[in-house]
Design a protein around this nucleic acid. Structure first.
Length: 930
RNA sequence: GCCCGGGUGGCGGAAUUGGCAGACGCGGGGGAUUCAAAAUCCCCUUCUCUUCUGGGAGUGCGGGUUCAAGUCCCGCCCCGGGCACCA
């Protein structure tokens, strides 16, 4: 920064910082400084570190975007790097590396814009990103850096798919098992088919289809988000609330298509229960719980003529209050319950102006299907029509009218409800609208003037349930339902099976082919990897609403049909043309970090159990953004559990501790038209923000192109150096909090490093300037107290306060007129080493060491210097600070009291008053109450 | 509407169990050094009253518990995030 000719020659400034940073980055790379030791295999070594305790520290790997980094991106990466460095210095074998999540739609889109093949484009972006991250001085084991697009990586993604395809969920044993075991259980008669058929009487193809329907990865006709303009189906998360594609804002249609599904619902309970053993924030756990959405209750059958209508309810205890029934407009049994004509006395309101129930229902169905999700969200007024038929409440035979309404969703429970307006707010609203009977079955508290009462209380109007509290009433009615055969205990989930097919080019091909009956056949392991064919024309095609999606792989005409012998002679098979979603690679990449060069296994058992630590283990620290709270983290947990069941990994959970870093925000400025202007060009003048001559308004938002407020790491390297950037990002605030970027504040971090440098080195000569004498007692006490605090802060990822403590120590040295004692200098260099590794290495070398500081032990506090002989005690009167006195450490309560009363100020305040109470906390405080 | 976070000086933030509110940094003010400036070093910097000794108020708002509350309890307000007709 300071390039003036008269500034000291050896001042620590941006250009000097850059030169030592590059020197050390080269040396670390040459020496493989950050290589972690494996217990066996290619990455084993004789460093001896394998005998140390180990720790696996991980970032959520990035998508290698072509647009480069801004200073907000590496916040979490710096945090894990500081922690990993600290752990290395405290005697751990540390695994820390970085991979790339490089498949997916963004890569395709970007490639399309630049006209390059996605592979070339992706590889160029990865190279660029590696360079940028290297420049930050991140201590990654470069040998373990993988990309999901590497053939040697996605071979194992396909292998894991085969594991899922070749297994089923045994709900008795509550775990996944190999599919071969299902076949033998069925043929031995140990397991009966759900549809009651005799397995051994089935034809071969019936058997095959039955088996297929049990697999964890299975084909199903499922309603999907079909976006004809993009030519692909989209995941729910890729569709906006308005029902349009997030990219391009094209219309999206719900449409049933045959797709690969993952049976994540089989794991719903375990995914829920095992949250307990995880060290994750309650916020994230709550989000996962909500997503899984477990509800316990009962399924109850209502008879409407000959038709059984099943409802799910969490409140079977309110059965006596059921006064009508509602089916979803898409309910499959609707057609058979519609009456031919309106019964006598049907209110006009229930008919919706139609002459027959059929007309009313079909008209309503049509309207409901045209309602977008947004309409439903914004307009929650209850609408519906009567179907002209009645159902019988099982417990008393009472006939209640059947309605259809869009407030009942086909996708949840049974798509039908018993409506209990007395105890349900939605049912109350509907009942009010259509003039339906309301029966309270729970006694509301006295003075209740509200509508539906959803709280606890004794049952009323419920015959044999009367007087029971909700939970007891539920148990009793469920018992009755089960005895009478009209219902049973049941649990439902919001979680749906995971749609796993995409009509895209840039993704993992499935290791699946189809035979002459169009049934799926898994390829054997020795056929892996199924390589993505090289296509010139890989872009999705725009289609119209009525056409089927065309997977781009269908255009690889050479590739689509394969002739092979899969055990029953040479035959021609058609390949699966869909590809896997982007989540596939991110579901398991952490496991490949462990053993990236293993050609025989996705990870060796030996290596996996070493790093994951079995049982309640997993990745020791996983840092990333909160936006992955549900999808990635849920999918990944699901795959991991399946691999665990099949004996491929030793821990039931992948990520033991999850930590969500905050985001760096930055000021953004809008002109009078609301257009964002380049934030870097805005100046502050007389309290106004000005862009040129125009006054602009300020707001804060996520740093990025759209708000035109990006600051790049390169700018920071030019002005300050990488160590300063690292230090500033860690000092801004706690790692898990959002924080606003302020370039003008970065200078404070540079100043700290300059002072550290100046306290150890003569700026004029560049020669080390430390003394060999001892530090005085006071400095030793400060030094050891600092070591203690910094260790504690580092351990708990509180880097901002660690830096504050280091700054205090350094300020002591700055104030002193003498040269810094060597013992202090050496400690100081260690304390800063995890945060600012380059300057620390440089100083460590100047202090006469020829090996890296990376593995030099982090200082331990000497307990002798953690206690001082005297302590300062605040003296309060009536709880307000009035004075402070200095007394011998460990002095008795009575001595402390006497000393406090002897203090001039205190004496003058209490002299003529009676002391009513004395609070004396040894070593802490004295409070007199007068 | 429900469920999570959060609210502390001009700004970012600190205060581990109830025990000195505002550590550390930015910004601001003053001084030393300098021909002068930059850089550096030192001091001050919550607000407010003041007779310059100190006094009063103060952690979103209103109550409470306590010798003592940013911290605990009750009732609100505001900001951020998630879910949202899930029976």
């Amino acid at each position: 920064m300071n390039e003036r000719s008269d500034s000291p020659k050896y001042r620590y400034d941006a250009s000097f910082a850059s030169s030592i940073e590059q020197k050390w980055q080269d040396r670390w790379e040459d020496q493989g400084t950050y290589y972690a030791s494996n217990p066996s295999g290619d990455l084993g070594d004789d460093s001896g570190r394998i005998d140390l305790p180990n720790i696996f520290i991980m970032d959520m790997f990035p998508y290698p975007s072509g647009s480069g980094l801004h200073v907000g991106h590496p916040l979490g990466f710096i945090g894990t790097d500081v922690f990993a460095r600290y752990k290395r210095m405290t005697g751990y074998n540390v695994l820390h590396t970085m991979g790339y999540d490089a498949f997916g739609l963004p890569a395709e889109e970007h490639a399309r814009q630049t006209g390059q093949h996605p592979r070339d484009n992706t590889n160029a972006n990865i190279e660029n990103m590696r360079k940028q991250l290297r420049r930050l001085g991140l201590g990654h084991d470069s040998r373990r850096s993988v990309s999901t697009t590497d053939l040697e990586f996605y071979k194992w993604t396909q292998w894991i798919f085969l594991q899922l395809f070749n297994s089923w969920y045994d709900s008795e044993a509550d775990r996944a098992r190999p599919i071969a075991e299902l076949e033998s259980l069925l043929s031995n008669g140990y397991l009966k088919l759900e549809n009651g058929l005799d397995w051994n009487a089935l034809t071969i193809s019936e058997k095959r289809e039955t088996i297929d329907s049990y697999r964890l990865a299975y084909l199903a006709e499922a309603p999907v988000n079909w976006c004809p303009a993009l030519g692909t189906v989209l995941a729910n998360e890729e569709v906006t609330a308005e029902g349009r594609s997030e990219r391009g804002n094209h219309p999206v249609f719900r449409r049933p298509l045959k797709q690969w599904m993952m049976r994540i619902t089989a794991y719903a309970d375990r995914l829920l229960d095992d949250l307990e053993i995880l060290d994750w924030s309650d916020a994230i756990k709550t989000m996962q719980r909500n997503w899984i959405g477990k509800s316990e209750g009962a399924e109850i059958t209502f008879k409407a003529g000959d038709v059984d209508l099943k409802v799910f309810t969490t409140r079977p205890d309110t059965l006596f209050g059921a006064t009508y029934m509602v089916l979803a407009p898409e309910h499959p049994l609707l057609e058979v319950v519609i009456a031919d004509s309106w019964p006598e006395g049907t209110p006009d309101k229930w008919k919706n102006g139609m002459a027959t129930p059929a007309e009313a229902v079909h008209n309503y169905q049509k309207e409901a299907s045209q309602k977008s999700d947004l309409d439903r969200q914004e307009n929650k007024d209850k609408t519906g029509v009567f179907v002209g038929e009645f159902a019988a409440v099982p417990v008393n035979g009472k006939k209640i009218p059947i309605f259809i309404s869009d407030y009942v969703l086909m996708g949840y429970g049974t798509g039908a409800i018993m409506a209990v307006p007395g105890q349900d707010e939605r049912d109350w609203e509907f009942a009010q609208e259509y003039g339906l009977e309301i029966i309270r079955t729970v006694q509301p508290p006295e003075g209740w003037d509200g509508d539906a009462f959803t709280g606890n209380g004794p049952a009323i109007n419920s015959q044999f349930l009367d007087g029971l509290q909700i939970n007891d009433a539920k148990e009793k009615i469920i018992e009755w339902l089960e005895n009478s055969g009209s219902g049973h205990r049941n649990t439902t989930y919001k979680l749906r099976d995971w749609l796993f097919s995409r009509q895209r080019y840039w993704g993992e091909p499935f290791p699946i082919v189809y035979d002459e009956n169009d049934l799926p056949v898994a390829l054997p392991e020795d056929c892996l990897p199924v390589e993505l064919p090289d296509l010139m024309d890989w872009a999705p095609r725009s289609l119209d609403e009525m056409s089927d999606p065309e997977p781009p792989l269908g255009r690889a005409s050479e590739w689509v049909y394969a002739e092979m012998d899969l055990g029953d002679g040479l035959k021609t098979y058609k390949r699966e043309l869909n590809t896997m979603p982007q989540w596939a690679g991110s579901c398991w990449y952490y496991l490949r970090y462990l053993d990236p060069t293993n050609a025989d296994e996705f990870v060796s058992k030996d290596v996996e159990s070493y790093w994951m630590n079995g049982d309640k283990g997993g990745v020791d620290l996983y840092v990333g953004g909160v936006e992955h709270a549900v999808l990635h983290l849920l999918y990944s947990r699901f795959w991991h559990k399946a691999l665990f069941d099949l004996g491929h990994v030793s821990t039931p959970e992948p990520f033991h501790r999850l930590y969500n870093q905050g985001y760096i925000q930055a000021a953004a400025y809008q002109d009078s038209r609301g257009i964002y202007v380049e934030a870097a060009d805005v100046i502050q003048e007389d309290g106004d923000f000005k862009y040129g001559n125009e006054i602009v308004t300020r707001s804060f938002g996520k740093m990025g192109k759209s708000l035109r407020n990006s600051v790049t790491p390169d700018e920071m390297y030019d002005q300050y150096g990488a160590d300063t950037l690292r230090l500033y990002e860690m000092f801004m605030g706690p790692l898990d909090q959002d924080r606003p970027w302020e370039t003008k504040s970065v200078v404070g971090s540079l100043r700290l490093l300059q002072r550290v440098w100046r306290n150890l080195v003569n700026e004029e000569t560049g020669i080390l300037a430390v003394s060999d004498g001892d530090a005085d007692l006071q400095l030793k006490q400060i030094l050891n107290q600092t070591i203690k605090s910094v260790r504690d802060d580092m351990e708990n990822l509180r880097f901002n306060t660690a830096i504050a403590r280091i700054t205090e120590l350094n300020n002591e040295l700055t104030k002193s007129n003498t040269e810094t004692p060597r013992e202090v200098a050496e400690v100081l260099v260690h304390l800063i080493a995890p945060l600012v590794p380059h300057i620390a290495e440089e100083l460590w070398e100047m202090l006469g060491n020829d090996s890296s500081i990376v593995y030099s032990p982090f200082p331990l506090p000497d307990p002798t210097y953690l206690v001082s002989e005297t302590v300062e005690i605040p003296i309060q009167v009536n709880g307000k600070l009035k004075s402070k006195i200095t007394v011998a450490a460990g002095c008795s309560s009575s001595d402390l009291r006497d000393a406090a009363l002897a203090d001039e100020k205190i004496a003058s305040i209490v002299s003529d008053k009676e002391i009513r109470k004395e609070i004396i906390v040894d070593g802490k405080l004295v409070n007199f109450v007068i």
